[in-house]
Design a binder for these strands. Structure first.
Length: 677
DNA sequence: CAGTGAGCGAGCTTCCGCTTGACTT
């Protein structure tokens, strides 16, 4: 009997179908060894020796592996084909002892062909790759467990910093500043409304004055990229009015009609990042919720593994998807050759396939019936995107009509139309862009607009981040991994570094204080290039070109020096928010401060005057028990809930505002129904 | 499902990445 060890139970179940009776398949459930939780666990004076120990809740798993190993004559380590997978394989080997025979096999997709091929080509454990993981782990531990205590001392207890979370926070704080500093500029556009062939308002936009284009593209350099926005050279109401005055006799003459075919290609199938982005955008789910739904779909065998950075699909899937497309939609919808996508992320490890349905014939309705509607909705996104990715391009005929008005100045207008002439992949994954068909215009045709108007606009600052855009930015910077994207947001939220305003992230005063402290003192770590440089170094270690210890030493020496310097610096002051309320003790103004439990009101004269009172965020609802105000509260863990303002006299509480109006029986039914759906 | 809080104070907090299960949202 041969023992095969993989990471996940589902993967174990799947490959047990490919391998014969001679194989016993077990799983490690991820990492089984790690640095201790309650101390640094890295001997910084002795070669950064890491004190790996058994992960507390993996003892049972390890016992099972040991038991299985006893009855096996060789062990095949089939964990994921990346840095972390290699380390897990190595830890398992250390755990099961040197007397056994070991082989290491790797495969990038869980298909019979790939697994068979892998088993034909076993190798030994790649110690260089394991070293790269050790370096990554040690570096993250040093950063996290040295910076966090510094924050406890300099800012407030319980706070945290890390290579990943601190950059995420920085993105949000920098964006807030960009928004605050953004200078809005007013501008105007001029539109002529033309009626023709029953189409009332064909919009002709002014695009040129005396041969000069009126659109101006502006570029704002952001911390994580660029933000492009448009305005026009018509900057004042007077300028706009002058143009309207000049255009008083309204006729325009068509000078050109341009037609062209535009091809649109489908997007690649989902990765974890893009799935979470669309989960947020199209279904309003946060990263955690998307992943939990996907987990179930994966466990039930409906989709491939959901933590991946690859857009590649297996040959088998390619074949069956193309068959499906031809059979269901016909030859026109099937491109001559399969479409191959490659990842744009330099740091992708591509240990798995893209996220796709395991069986293209599985329809949404079956999933909805079996697991519930929410699962069905997420499955549908995955199915549409995967099938569309192998379908033909959509073809649009786009029409541009140019019309001129020669007055004191020469004005040029433009109308755009587009008609879908072949839907292609849009048949399964519609984009929501409807047709905008223009009637036929001829050169020299004279148009008589019903009206010509000016419209006021303002340039807009870049938007705040939400779940989707933050994950996108982090992934582009190579920061975080598919298995951690969702928890990054959860971490900085639970530290109260950020709050949500209509789903978008706003830094709190604490978040700003922590960020500014880190940027002022540790900007070499707390920035986007740091992780990219780290990954380069880890590659060198994995290639065997460099040793891991000197790399860590190079990083740690200056870091340690800086830690020493900052140790003696003054405590960081957290900003207060002004209010109009007056302190009943001394008549000074009250301010909003933030403590361990969130916001509270205190006298601005603290410490001379120690008056405090709770900060309450009201809702417009009344308590169904005693008619008191319903106010927003937080649990010890920071979760939001709604309670009665007469607490503790009245103990009414609810998780959701919608649950409050009805009586308790209805409430119970509602919550049950929600769990099902 | 909660009534405190901040420059003091015992003992404690904390990282990133790999997994699922126990929680109910």
């Amino acid at each position: 009997m041969k023992l095969v060890i993989v990471e996940s139970p589902t993967k174990a179940r799947t490959i047990s179908r490919f391998l014969g009776k001679d194989y016993l398949i077990k799983f490690s459930m991820g990492h089984i060894m790690d640095l201790p939780k309650s101390k640094l666990g890295v001997d910084v004076d002795n070669g950064f020796n890491p004190q790996y120990e058994v992960v507390e809740d993996k003892k049972k798993t390890i016992a099972e592996l040991k038991k299985a190993a006893k009855t096996s004559d060789s062990i095949i380590l089939a964990t994921d084909p990346d840095r972390e997978g290699e380390a897990i394989a190595s830890h398992v080997k250390d755990m099961l002892g040197k007397t056994q025979k070991y082989q290491r096999v790797v495969f990038h997709e869980i298909t019979k062909e790939a697994v068979d091929e892998a088993f034909k080509n076993p190798r030994v454990i790649d110690t260089n790759l394991v070293d790269a993981q050790t370096a990554r782990r040690v570096l993250d531990r040093l950063v996290g467990y040295k910076l966090s205590p510094l924050l406890w001392k300099k800012v407030r207890r319980g706070l945290s910093a890390g290579r990943v979370q601190s950059v995420a926070l920085r993105l949000i704080v920098e964006r807030e500043r960009e928004i605050e500093n953004f200078k809005k500029e007013p501008y105007f556009t001029i539109t002529a409304f033309v009626k023709k062939e029953n189409i009332d308002n064909i919009l002709f936009e002014l695009i040129e004055v005396d041969g000069e284009k009126i659109d101006v593209q502006r570029t704002l350099k952001l911390y994580d990229g660029e933000y492009k926005y448009k305005k026009t050279i018509i900057g004042t109401e007077q300028d706009a009015q002058n143009i309207l005055d000049d255009l008083k006799s309204k006729s325009l003459v068509v000078s050109d009609v341009l037609e062209k075919e535009v091809h649109r290609s489908p997007q690649p199938p989902y990765t974890t990042s893009t799935l979470q982005q669309d989960g947020a955008r199209r279904l309003g789910l946060n990263g955690r919720r998307t992943m939990s739904l996907a987990q179930k779909l994966y466990e039930e065998g409906f989709i491939t593994y959901h933590r991946t950075d690859s857009v590649v699909i297996s040959n088998a899937a390619l074949f069956s998807t193309r068959n499906y497309i031809e059979k269901e939609f016909g030859k026109r919808y099937l491109p001559e050759k399969p479409k191959f996508y490659s990842t744009k992320q330099k740091l992708a490890q591509e240990a798995h396939e893209a996220i796709r349905p395991t069986k293209v014939s599985n329809q949404t309705s079956a999933i909805s019936n079996q697991l519930g509607e929410q699962y069905g909705k997420l499955y549908e996104l995955i199915w549409r995107r995967a099938v569309a990715s192998q379908m033909a391009d959509a073809i649009t005929e786009s029409t541009t009509v140019i019309a001129d008005a020669k007055r004191e100045r020469n004005f040029r207008f433009k109308a755009n139309g587009s008609v879908l002439i072949f839907d292609g992949f849009l048949k399964v994954n519609p984009s929501g862009l409807g047709d905008n068909k223009l009637p036929e215009f001829k050169k020299e045709e004279v148009l008589h607009p019903a009206k010509i108007e000016k419209t006021f606009h303002e340039t807009l600052p870049p938007p705040r981040y939400n779940d989707a855009s933050l994950i996108k930015s982090l992934e582009e910077a190579g920061i975080g991994r598919p298995s951690t994207y969702a928890s990054i947001v959860a971490t900085i939220e639970s530290r109260a570094y950020i709050e949500r305003d209509q789903g978008r992230f706003v830094p709190t005063v604490v978040g700003v204080a922590v960020n500014d402290f880190l940027v002022a003192n540790f900007s070499t770590i707390d920035d986007i290039p740091f992780t990219a440089e780290m990954e380069d170094e880890l590659d060198n270690i994995a290639n065997g070109e460099k040793e891991w210890e000197p790399m860590i030493k190079n990083f740690y020496s200056p870091f340690e020096k800086k830690l020493g310097e900052v140790e003696g610096a003054a405590r960081v002051k957290i900003a207060v928010e002004e209010t109009d309320e007056i302190c009943p003790n001394c008549g000074s103004k009250l301010v909003i401060r933030t403590g361990r439990f969130g916001k509270f009101l205190s006298c601005s004269k603290f410490p001379e005057c120690k008056f405090t009172k709770p900060f309450v965020e009201k809702t417009n609802l009344k308590c169904p028990k005693d008619g008191g105000d319903v106010i927003v509260k937080k649990t010890r863990k920071g979760r939001k809930f709604f309670g009665c303002s007469n607490y503790p006299k009245c103990d009414f509480a609810a998780w959701k505002l919608e649950d409050i109006s009805g009586n308790s029986k209805i409430k119970n039914q509602n919550s049950k129904a929600q769990i099902k759906s």
